[in-house]
């Protein structure tokens, strides 16, 4: 077993510095690497480019980094729930690249899988495709989208072991698996770091080869963005 376990979030984030590019898993606030984000806020590193489907909310998730002006550029598909984000974007403080959600996922996956670029139909004929190479296959037009290049990927999983194997839960899976191994260093925080051998190899979602560092998160708030319920009748 190649040991990927580190003792805490401080060790896990060794080597992060100003002006780096990070991938961060999560959809809305579900499945975000809360512990890594808290540590990045604490370290106060700046000029970051963050690739993440969303940008958190004003007081949680990537919103915490935005509030401290640590992010220079966001690459996201949807940024609707964050007033501070909107303010910084409209004032020009924050650079924003909005891309289709499936393209975001596939540009991560391409980096993970060793493809330099992929063709997707998403965004053809729109401003998303401006300046990009397009090509026709079987009568349909596609846009060439490049694999991301990132220094760190911060992902969150439900369970993991010291070998770096990961299992996700529910829709907290989202972008986390496609970001594993898509950056130079992948840091996984898990709710539960279980003893080696206790995860069934048949049930592993992400094999440890894609993960360089793993730790059990000290705290997971797991905030719900839109609490919707039905009445018991």
């Amino acid at each position: 077993m190649i040991n990927k376990k580190v003792n805490n979030v401080q060790e896990a984030l060794e080597g992060v510095s100003d002006n780096m590019t990070f991938m961060l898993g999560g959809f809305g606030l579900s499945g975000i690497p809360e512990n890594a984000i808290a540590e990045l806020v604490k370290r106060g590193i700046k000029g970051l480019t963050c690739i993440s489907n969303n940008a958190g909310v004003d007081d949680f998730g990537l919103g915490l980094l935005l509030k401290k002006h640590q992010i220079k550029k966001m690459v996201s598909s949807y940024v609707g729930e964050n007033d501070e984000f909107e303010r910084q974007m409209l004032s020009g403080e924050l650079e924003v690249e909005l891309i289709p959600q499936g393209t975001l996922a596939e540009r991560c996956r391409a980096a993970q899988a060793g493809f330099p670029a992929i063709y997707t139909p998403a965004g053809y004929g729109t401003e998303v495709a401006e300046g990009k190479e397009t090509r026709e296959f079987d009568g349909k037009m596609y846009v060439l989208e490049h694999a991301f290049k990132a220094d760190f990927a911060f992902v969150k999983a439900w369970k993991g072991d010291a070998a770096g194997n990961l299992i996700f839960k529910g829709t907290a899976r989202n972008f986390n698996p496609v970001m594993c191994g898509a950056a130079k260093i992948t840091v996984a925080e898990v709710e539960e770091l279980v003893p080696l051998g206790s995860l069934d190899p048949n049930q592993i979602h992400i094999p440890g080869i894609f993960v360089q560092r793993i730790f059990e998160g000290e705290r997971f708030e797991k905030r719900i963005e839109q609490r919707t319920v039905r009445s018991r009748e």
Partner: peptide, 30 residues
């Protein structure tokens, strides 16, 4: 979900808490 049964790990694309039906599956964004 019924009140009290919300799960932060089970939401829809509108970020609303949901439930799953028998036969449901979860998967990654790609």
């Amino acid at each position: 979900p019924f009140e009290g049964e919300e799960d932060a790990d089970v939401i829809n694309a509108g970020k609303q808490t949901i439930t799953t039906l028998p036969g449901a599956s979860f998967f990654d964004s790609a």
